[in-house]
Computed example of a mutant assay.
Amino acid sequence: MKIKKADLEKVAALREQYPDMDLPEIAFVGRSNVGKSSMINAMLNRKSLAKTSSTPGKTRTINFYRVNDDLRLVDLPGYGYAKVSKKEKGSWSSIINTYLNHRENLIEVILLVDARHEPTDQDKQMFEAIRQIGYSGIVIATKADKISKSKYNKSANIIAKKLGMEVKENIIFFSSTNKEYVDELWDIFEDMIEFHREEE
């Protein structure tokens, strides 16, 4: 996809703050510091549209990025950061669950995990929730430039086993640093959008 225009359209914590449901949305969820913002910047060919932070757990809102007036990429709050209170963790969980369960124009939810490490129990819970809602269970393994390509298969096996994935091919390795697989991801997203439009 050629990116002609990309903007941060809305920053929301409450359902009434969401933008209109006029465009299909693809949402990304994952642990704090897994690289969601960096991935969105790489996908949109922008350096700092999505704000990255060296402080995990800083994003406590849902960020809606409008792309070419055709779709939205949605950055959900990161989870799993230990140095926050139970109240804050509960708040983030509520923000994520409200969005996932009430957004009729949401066509896919994609889990991001770190390619270098085994997914956590929270990642597994999130993956199971995504599958139960009815989404396909695509996983993006970020920071892939930090491991050699010869280790991709081993990493994929570890991720698939931990998450209980039936289709290992649903794991996509991605690097925001060298932007590897940006085009492939856009091909996948465009197929999702096309399928969604045919279903309407």
Results as ranks from 00 to 15, higher is better:
residue 149 K to F: 06
residue 168 K to W: 02
residue 183 D to V: 14
residue 181 Y to E: 15
residue 185 L to Q: 06
residue 156 A to F: 03
residue 183 D to H: 15
residue 156 A to T: 04
residue 152 Y to K: 06
residue 147 I to F: 07
residue 160 A to C: 10
residue 176 S to F: 08
residue 160 A to I: 02
residue 167 V to M: 02
residue 174 F to K: 06
residue 141 A to C: 11
residue 175 S to Q: 08
residue 158 I to N: 10
residue 181 Y to L: 09
residue 144 A to S: 15
residue 144 A to L: 03
residue 141 A to R: 09
residue 162 K to P: 07
residue 159 I to A: 05
residue 163 L to P: 02
residue 154 K to A: 09
residue 141 A to L: 12
residue 175 S to D: 06
residue 179 K to D: 03
residue 139 V to A: 09
residue 173 F to S: 03
residue 173 F to Y: 09
residue 186 W to N: 07
residue 180 E to V: 11
residue 153 N to D: 15
residue 179 K to R: 15
residue 172 I to R: 13
residue 146 K to E: 13
residue 160 A to H: 05
residue 181 Y to W: 13
residue 151 K to E: 11
residue 160 A to F: 04
residue 181 Y to P: 04
residue 147 I to E: 03
residue 168 K to T: 07
residue 178 N to E: 12
residue 177 T to K: 15
residue 155 S to W: 09
residue 179 K to A: 12
residue 154 K to D: 08
residue 182 V to N: 12
residue 152 Y to T: 04
residue 171 I to K: 07
residue 140 I to S: 01
residue 170 N to G: 00
residue 180 E to M: 14
residue 135 Y to N: 08
residue 172 I to H: 15
residue 173 F to H: 05
residue 164 G to V: 05
residue 140 I to D: 03
residue 186 W to M: 07
residue 159 I to D: 00
residue 177 T to M: 12
residue 178 N to Y: 10
residue 155 S to R: 08
residue 177 T to C: 02
residue 170 N to Y: 08
residue 157 N to P: 00
residue 157 N to R: 15
residue 168 K to I: 12
residue 146 K to L: 14
residue 146 K to H: 06
residue 170 N to R: 15
residue 154 K to M: 10
residue 148 S to F: 12
residue 151 K to H: 11
residue 176 S to E: 11
residue 159 I to G: 00
residue 180 E to G: 13
residue 146 K to Y: 01
residue 172 I to G: 00
residue 157 N to D: 14
residue 169 E to M: 02
residue 173 F to D: 05
residue 184 E to L: 15
residue 145 D to Y: 08
residue 163 L to V: 08
residue 175 S to E: 10
residue 151 K to G: 01
residue 164 G to F: 08
residue 161 K to Y: 07
residue 170 N to Q: 12
residue 170 N to V: 00
residue 184 E to H: 07
residue 164 G to I: 05
residue 136 S to R: 15
residue 146 K to Q: 13
residue 171 I to Q: 03
residue 150 S to E: 14
residue 152 Y to E: 06
residue 155 S to L: 10
residue 153 N to M: 14
residue 147 I to Y: 02
residue 134 G to V: 04
residue 180 E to A: 13
residue 182 V to G: 04
residue 149 K to Q: 14
residue 165 M to N: 04
residue 179 K to M: 08
residue 179 K to Q: 14
residue 157 N to F: 10
residue 151 K to I: 00
residue 153 N to R: 15
residue 166 E to F: 03
